[in-house]
């Protein structure tokens, strides 16, 4: 550098550096590049979580297949009212025999040990949705003229079995057209009238599932077994929507409907209660009777969804 009159000048103030404009332009370019890249990175992260979610469903699916190999029947959605749900019955096939052994199969959920109720297992949680807390908080809206069950905390889950969509009003009763329905059980007569809390203890003597693969007469590859539960963030841990998963008392906690009247929830904040739905972007994952795991668009027509959830509607399923 030389000053105007030709003398060499080493004063730092006169050294040629970046101008403000140049600096701003380069920062702006870097900013644009990062702005372009960030969504891609976020999408890759979400894609990884989605893959893990599908892997969870695959494991659940394998658990159900192995359950079927062992007992020649699908796990019932719940062994009987107040006892336990499908999610607990397949635990031995998810390599959780020890947890399963902590449960006394004769007793109702409300009388089980803390270990049995509160131990959560990773395959039951979608990483997009939550990494905790895992224990249920309360029962809302269970105080009805028919039943009063107080809250006994238990671990929750992000997946529910398909209860079909009908017949009207009685979903998850034994007449439900879903793949997994309530078991056929024999119990001791209760010693105390119903309507008391905790529900009166009566031993579960035996139970049997009402469905097996041969009852999926629409075809195992056309019948949904388990899918992601829709739960609004404000309802986490609250029965019926997200109560204890091992509790066979509240169908809204361990099962979901899909079909006419029960569209897949479009976003995490959708107001639906009894529907399938995910926190992924426009996709909800399901596992079907053939062991496959499929992501289904949340905008699927409810008629087609209904044909998938119903095991015996004799309808042709179009491409979905």
């Amino acid at each position: 550098m030389y000053s105007s009159h030709g003398k060499r000048c080493l004063q730092p103030l006169e050294r040629r550096g970046f101008t403000l404009i140049e600096l701003l332009v380069s920062i702006a370019i870097i900013g644009v590049l990062i702005a372009l890249m960030l969504p891609a990175v976020q999408q890759a992260r979400e894609q990884a979580r989605m893959t893990q979610c599908r892997n969870n469903l695959k494991q659940i699916s394998m658990g159900i297949q192995n359950f079927h190999s062992q007992y020649n029947e699908l796990p019932p959605s719940r062994s009987y009212d107040h006892y336990t749900s499908w999610a607990f019955l397949i635990l031995p096939f998810l390599e959780n025999v020890n947890l399963f052994e902590n449960w006394d199969p004769e007793l109702k959920y409300y009388y089980q040990s803390d270990t049995a109720r509160l131990t959560h297992i990773p395959p039951y949680f979608c990483p997009t949705r939550r990494s905790g807390p895992f224990a249920s908080i309360e029962n809302a809206a269970v105080l009805s003229p028919y039943e009063t069950s107080g809250h006994v905390p238990g671990t929750v889950a992000d997946y529910g079995c398909s209860a079909g969509y009908g017949p009207p009003g009685v979903w998850n009763w034994i007449t439900s057209n879903g793949a997994m329905v309530m078991g056929d059980a024999t119990t001791d007569p209760p010693t105390v009238p119903a309507g008391n809390y905790p529900p009166p203890q009566a031993r579960l003597l035996r139970f049997k599932s009402r469905t097996s693969f041969k009852d999926l007469i629409d075809g195992a590859s056309n019948t949904i077994l388990v899918g992601e539960k829709h739960v609004r963030p404000s309802r986490w841990g609250i029965a019926q929507e997200d109560g204890a998963i091992y509790n066979g008392d509240h169908p809204g906690s361990f099962s979901r409907c899909g079909g006419p009247g029960y569209p897949i929830a479009r976003s995490a904040t959708d107001v639906y209660r009894d529907n399938f739905g995910s926190y992924h972007n426009e996709i909800c994952n399901f596992t079907l009777g053939d062991g496959s795991v499929r992501g289904i668009s949340v905008y699927i027509a409810t008629e087609i969804l209904g044909r998938l959830t119903a095991r015996n509607d004799n309808e042709v399923v179009e491409e979905f």
Binding site: A141, V142, S144, P145, Y146, E147, P168, G169, V170, W171, N172, W173, T175, A239, Q240, H250, P251, G252, P260, G261, Y262, R273, D274
Partner: peptide, 26 residues
């Protein structure tokens, strides 16, 4: 479609109140 809200205990068939809406609308 107007099904009864579950979780009130009325998912039991013998305790269902009569349907209000005509079922053809399903």
């Amino acid at each position: 479609i107007s099904d009864f809200e579950i979780g009130t205990g009325i998912e039991r068939p013998e305790e269902l109140p009569p349907e209000r809406l005509h079922l053809k609308y399903r």
